[in-house]
Design a protein around this nucleic acid. Structure first.
Lengths: 158, 158
DNA sequence: TTTGACCTGTGAGTTGCTCACAGGTTTTAG
DNA sequence: CTAAAACCTGTGAGCAACTCACAGGTCAAA
């Protein structure tokens, strides 16, 4: 299965590291372009060579993406780690910032769900399903805007 | 304040309708390009003329966007209304679909928040704040993937 | 009349990928 | 041994829903 060079250096080509991380090979190429991954080159054919460290970086990047970190943030973290600085104080800041965002998003979506279920219920209550043909449309039209800013007055968390 | 033609026909220029709807004028131009708005033209100067109906369409579009409808969906709804079809059965379908999505998003974000607060708590428990400099990073690295599909086994809502 | 604010259309930038293309390399099957 | 399949390379475009920039035309008020 593994060739000699793979056993010795554990280097992978694009498709191999992509499969190992469960991502699209184009994502690997994209991250390489974006300097999140810095593979060496095989001088014979100019192919990219990824090692176990690259795989860890890639997995880290994917997990950070799931947490909502942006690619520039992730690059910053990885670069700092490369420089033997602990990126963690910075990570903590970004992390806390991101947590606040997540909580805001949750509140907004809960508000939204509440309105939507109410709208659907109002629509269901109608006799036949298409009572006058405009209920939902009116519900959308008369939807009152979520306060554009500083709307933190009523935040009942479910 | 209002000129004569505005009083009689209530036509607005880009900036006026944009302000009336609380959006960026470029958004109005964009929606016009995308055929969500179909203003007439002033033959004198080729300026776009929006009327009260356009304003209602624009407001409807904005509210539908807040609900998560896509521009093609919104265009479909508006076009059907133009044809004197009630768009509402279709709207209901899209609406229900969107509600399911919103609920899925809420569940995912709540999962995420739970993990993030746990991570921060673990980090806070450390003596000084930067205990070994890698806690959060490891927390990210060892973050276990949210089950990619069918992860609906444990959905404790809040 | 000139300044400034608006209008016009078009094209590019944003984010995080994903896909397409054209040409080079390597692997595999016959 | 060779031909085809599968991979590699870099580059450029496309997605959504705007937002901004630009160059030139129009119009209001000082």
């Amino acid at each position: 299965m593994l060739r000699q060079d793979q056993i010795e250096n554990k280097t992978m080509k694009v498709k191999e590291i992509a499969e190992a991380a469960g991502v699209n090979p184009d994502t690997v190429r994209f991250y390489t372009r974006e300097n999140l991954l810095k593979p060496t080159r095989n001088p014979d054919n100019n192919y990219q060579q990824f090692d176990a460290e690259d795989l860890r970086r890639l997995r880290f990047a994917r997990k950070a993406r799931q947490l909502g970190f942006s690619l520039p943030e992730i690059r910053q973290i990885l670069d700092q780690a490369d420089d033997h600085h602990s990126p963690c104080p910075m990570v903590r800041d970004v992390f806390q910032h991101r947590l606040a965002e997540v909580e805001r998003e949750i509140r907004e979506l809960q508000q939204l769900r509440k309105r939507m279920t109410a709208a659907l219920a109002a629509w269901q209550d109608m006799p036949d399903g298409t009572p006058d043909g405009h209920t939902i449309c009116r519900l959308i039209e008369h939807w009152d805007d979520p306060a554009p800013c500083c709307g933190a007055s009523e935040q009942n968390e479910e």
